[in-house]
Amino acid sequence: MTTGSMKTKRAIGNTITYIVLIVISIIWLFPFVCMFLQSFRSMNEGGGGMVDYLLPKQFSLDSYAFLFSEESKFVRWYGNTLVIAFFVAILSTMMVLCVSYALSRMRFKGRTVLMRFWLILGMFPGFLSMICLYFLLKQFGLTQEGAIPGLILIGVASSGMGYYVTKGYFDTIPKALDEAARIDGASRARVFFTMILPMSKPIIIYALLTAFMNPWCDYVFASYVAFGYSDSYNVAVAMQRWVWTNDYQGYFTRFCAGGMLIAVPITILFMCLQKYYVEGVTGGAVKG
């Protein structure tokens, strides 16, 4: 019970915790550090392929220069992804907000049936319908040359199904506020636009952020829809080919460089908005 032994005990405990945390941090950052280093390896060294050491012997910007050169469409692919991510983020957030408000605040006929139906739909694996969606998009001319709007359409169309987190957030806003405003003669739409939305800034940012990040990792459906038309690739489609296809020799350092160019801005964006993200995932987890 002496405060002295308590203190030493706590100090030892803290030291161990620090050590564990430092080890964890190293493990978490190690791959990214490797990637960062490799992205600066000169093309003269190992021809841009894999090597069995960590520190490049010769630093250079060869890989980055290649990505921005005429030889590569990387800038275009990056732009494509940015455009898709931007529109998907805006439009799908709007869809989610609409659905969430309707399901949270209004009790209409078929509401529970609809929610159950969507829950059931969500249990089917997405890849199942890939081929069907491809041909559906093709009918509208939204594959190959039109793949970018096609991918935006697909990214947005069914986004209403992901309403859980936002609806959970809306549920926590007291209904008494709505009721008061409605007694004062405000319409539902007015309540939604002037009261609920301004109060939901964190969840809107969360929805925007998650929707923005999804398209960066979509290589499966995006490669299907682009169907060999390289101008319509997104970065994920193009870069996974560098790793998996033998046609692309010496693209390893370029992959690392491209990976850095994608990872750094998104990570910075994420760090800035981390607060909202945490709020979103926590809320979503608790409300289910």
Binding site: M95, C98, V99, Y101, A102, M106, F108, L114, W118, L121, F124, L128, S129, C132, L133, L136, L153, I154, V156, A157, S158, S159, G160, M161, S187, R188, A189, R190, F192
Partner: peptide, 28 residues
Amino acid sequence: LDSNFDKTLMALPFTGVMVFTALPIVFM
């Protein structure tokens, strides 16, 4: 915009899910 606001809100998301999720799943 008022008592039927839910219809306005749900129209587009519902159509989207029906055409791009439900229809392909039934098809598959």
